[in-house]
Amino acid sequence: MVIPTLARLCRAAIVTALVALSMNGERTLAGDPPFITLASTTSTENSGLLAYLTPKFREVTGIDVRVVAVGTGQALRMGRSGDADVVLVHDRASEDAFVAAGYGIERRDVMYNDFVILGPRDDPASIRETSNAPRALAKLAEGRHTFLSRGDDSGTHKAEMRLWALAEVDPRPASGTWYRETGSGMGATLNTASAMNAYTLSDRGTWLSFRNRGDLEILVEGDPPLNNPYGAILVNPERHPHVKAELGRKFVEWLVSDAGQKAIDDFRIDGQQLFFSNRNAEK
């Protein structure tokens, strides 16, 4: 009585599992709308920009955009191994190297925002007075004030390293003392900075949409070296024949079209504009 019932239940469970598995297969093979995989950065995903842009793109083209949000370095690696169709990243030097090596084609400037230096409200290093970002960093190094670096080969990390170079300070030997590398994404690094009351560098978009601010606030902003341009690159279909070049190109073209550029400028958090389309830059 009980036992045959249990046996039947077990059999039913296995059959259900197999049916579900096969349906899972169909769903991803046939039932889905066409889609591309976009490797992008945590800044564009965490801020909500891509969740705002991609439905607009789908409305026009019927193409779904699946966003995998990682650091710029890993996004480019994904492009290199053919695991994405388009990359949207923010490190001009590595973007150019990516294209030069033949991994990507048709790089387009899409938008920009800027980095900000964050720190505790009482600003023990007194960097609020300086509007010069490299000089602010030099002051942090001088006073050995705790600074959190992403340390993850992301676009923000690379921008930070360029700022240190401009400041003529190499912080890496101090790693583990006042200079701390979190090896994590922007959000995790901001959580850590907020808990430690430390200084850090963030893109403005992630910061504006970040909730757990604690005592942190923007101390340095607006310096030209803090400019943060984003570029979109199509992964080279000659390297990876399965890359959806047609669909991917449509997305890049849409991003730089009037409609796409306007959508970028329209995106707001708490009334603040986070990203600035490239048509503004040309003005």
Partner: peptide
């Protein structure tokens, strides 16, 4: 993980 990184603890 995503909400944590957005700071929405």
């Amino acid at each position: 993980t995503l909400e944590t990184s957005r700071g929405d603890l």
